[in-house]
Simulated assay, not measured.
Amino acid sequence: MTLFDCQVGEKAEVLGVSGERAIRKRLIDMGITTGTVLFIRKVAPMGDPIEIRCRGYELSLRKEEAKTIEVRRIDR
């Protein structure tokens, strides 16, 4: 599953980041690496952007970026 499939309030562990090289590098540079735990804080009314908590800071991602982050749910 991808980060895009997660719901507000869920935690997910990053399994990998795919997609275009430039986007992938940017996400990894922001701390979204394998094993990182993400918390989905908010989703805008139209679904874009998605606000997550990653390594102690808040980060907003576009839907297309969230679809490139493969995760597994930790809990509901």
Rank of each mutant, 00 (worst) to 15 (best):
I74V: 15
I32A: 07
L3H: 09
L61I: 09
G9Q: 02
K63G: 11
V71Q: 01
E51H: 12
V37P: 03
L27M: 14
K11E: 15
L59W: 02
R76K: 13
T33V: 12
S60T: 13
A12S: 11
S18D: 04
G31I: 00
L38Y: 10
T68V: 07
E13H: 10
M46T: 10
I23G: 04
V8W: 04
V14C: 10
C54N: 07
G31V: 03
E51I: 07
L61V: 09
F39S: 03
R53P: 01
D29Y: 10
R76G: 09
I69S: 08
A22F: 15
G47K: 05
E58A: 01
T36P: 00
E64W: 13
E20T: 08
T34H: 08
A44V: 00
Q7K: 15
E58D: 09
D48Y: 06
K67Q: 15
R62I: 04
K42I: 00
T33M: 05
R53I: 03
E64F: 15
R24V: 12
I40D: 01
I23L: 13
I69Y: 12
E65N: 07
E58F: 00
M1L: 07
C54D: 04
G16L: 03
F4S: 10
K11D: 10
A44Y: 14
M30V: 14
A44F: 12
K11C: 13
T2M: 05
G31Q: 02
I52R: 02
M1R: 14
I69Q: 03
A66I: 06
K11Q: 15
V17R: 05
E65H: 09
R26D: 10
G9L: 01
R21M: 08
T33Q: 02
R53L: 06
E10S: 14
G19K: 11
D75Y: 09
E13D: 03
Y57I: 11
D75V: 00
D75R: 08
F39K: 04
E10C: 12
L3P: 10
T34W: 09
R53F: 03
C6W: 08
I28V: 15
I69C: 03
M1S: 14
I74S: 02
I74A: 03
M1E: 01
Y57K: 15
P45W: 11
P49S: 04
T68Y: 00
C6D: 00
I52Y: 02
G9I: 01
R41W: 01
I28L: 13
L38D: 12
K67W: 06
R72E: 06
D5C: 05
A66W: 04
K63L: 06
L38R: 00
G31P: 00
R24Y: 10
T2L: 02
G9Y: 02
A12T: 00
I69W: 09
G31Y: 07
L38M: 05
C6P: 07
E51G: 02
I40E: 03
I32P: 00
I23Q: 13
R21S: 14
P45Y: 05
L15Q: 12
R26T: 10
R26Y: 12
A66H: 05
A44Q: 13
D75W: 06
R26M: 11
L61R: 11
E58Q: 02
L38T: 02
K25Q: 14
T2S: 14
I40S: 00
G47L: 10
R21Y: 13
R26L: 10
